[in-house]
Design a protein around this nucleic acid. Sequence first.
DNA 1: AACATGATTCGCT
DNA 2: GCGAATCATGTTG
Length: 186
Amino acid sequence: MSDVLERARGLLGRVLHAHGTSIVITEVEAYGGTQDPASHAYTRTPRSEIMYGPPWRLYVYRSYGIHHCANVVTGPTEQAAAVLLRAGRVVAGLDVARDRRPGVPDHRLASGPGNLARAAGIDLDDLGTDLLGDGPVRLGDREAPGSVSAGPRVGVTREADRPWRFWITGDLTVSAYRRSPRAPSS
DNA sequence: AACATGATTCGCT
DNA sequence: GCGAATCATGTTG
């Protein structure tokens, strides 16, 4: 189970190539699947089915009816662990990303999970994509980040205190922490 | 078939 | 800092 934490940290600094953009991942959150009450995969449903399969595939879900969020399934198979991509820095395809998010300053283009998916052009059509293949969404090289910080996950009500959110210390693109109003007071 | 609930964002105070 | 928007998904009757 702690495997997903290593995978989460290992995704920081890695490049995501998606639909004409390249984004360096700067902030992630780990979800422990069947072992984690906060995970969508805690209960197996049609929506979460993809996470029970092989790792390195893309799990995309709709949030609040409007936004899309992108996750990397980390496995092992049947454990359904995944890592939510929360923020990144657009390093290529800036013009494309700007078109997708008009009026937003560059360092905010992919700040926040819904915004990252938007800037990357990721939606439900990309569900299940093999991120190690050479499709329209794939993972590329990694440049090890200098310093990594950890803290509680944003917006979750259950297990709200697990420090399973990781980000590159001091990076401008990292989104703000906000505890769920429904989470029990820490 | 109806109800409750978000792994969020944006705008206003 | 706070609250509304908005609808697919999961849960309950």
